[in-house]
Simulated scan of single mutants.
Amino acid sequence: MATQPSLPINVCIIEDHADFRNTLRTAIDRTPTLSCFSAFSNAEDAFEHLSQSSSPDIIVLDLGLPGIDGIEAIPRLKELAPEAKVLILTVFENKTRVFQALGAGASGYLMKASGIKSIIQGIEDAHNGIAPLSADIAQMVFATFSAFKPQTNEAEISEREVEVLRKLADGSTRIEIADQLNISRHTIDSHVRNIYRKLHVHNVSGAITKAAAMHII
């Protein structure tokens, strides 16, 4: 029994620049796996059409639209076409715009400067569950999330260093700690230097304060 050919991915374009819209529409229709479902110059016309039509698979959305802004349009598009994935295609690299779009429900964010070939690949990736991001956008997103990585015991304070920290917090001197732990003063000094380096501090009070805030002691 012959295998039924898979249906093409239906794409809706919302882009106000006529030349770019037509270029993208032609490229989509020339791609065997894709088909241009419809194309509009503004969000309002797209809303009207989607309210009376079946949902596309992918909506390619420009942000700088006349009338309703692209970011404002995303929730309404998701309401009218809940099965569709919204793929941003724009010239804006502004971090705020990127996170506003992704936060509003966009499934990917591509730059027009990436070129038609990359855009076509991004549409196919979005349909296959891969969130397409232009290289610069991906770097921005990952850098932002890395900056907000929670501070935990990843400083890798050893058990012995924690023991030294606790004794310092109790008011013991380094000589006293060396005697209590039956190790040399040189070893205690080495532990303290490691603690300072791992906690990014420069004195005992700073180490104790930070260790307490991180629930190390």
Rank of each mutant, 00 (worst) to 15 (best):
K112V: 02
E79A: 11
I130S: 05
S53V: 00
G108L: 04
R21I: 01
S114L: 13
S41P: 02
I120W: 06
K85D: 08
A46I: 04
R25C: 12
L63H: 04
E83R: 15
S55M: 07
K85E: 12
F92S: 13
A126H: 05
V86L: 08
E83M: 11
I123M: 06
I71L: 07
I116Y: 05
I123V: 07
E48H: 15
R25W: 01
P56A: 04
I71D: 09
S38E: 12
S53M: 11
I14T: 07
S107Q: 13
G103Y: 07
I116A: 04
L80A: 06
V98T: 06
L34H: 09
S134Q: 04
I88D: 09
V98Y: 06
A27F: 06
S41K: 14
K85S: 14
P66Q: 08
I119H: 05
I130R: 10
H17E: 15
G108F: 03
R21N: 13
I13Q: 09
A27I: 01
K95F: 06
E79M: 12
P132V: 00
I119G: 05
S54K: 14
G105M: 02
L50C: 11
I120H: 08
A46E: 09
T90F: 04
I58Y: 02
R21M: 13
Q100D: 15
N42H: 10
S55Q: 15
I116C: 06
A104S: 15
D136Q: 13
R21T: 02
A101F: 02
E44I: 10
P132H: 01
G67M: 07
A135W: 00
G122L: 00
K78H: 09
A113W: 02
R25D: 10
E48I: 10
E79N: 12
S114E: 15
V91N: 15
N94K: 14
I68P: 01
L65S: 10
E79Y: 12
I120A: 03
S118W: 00
I14K: 13
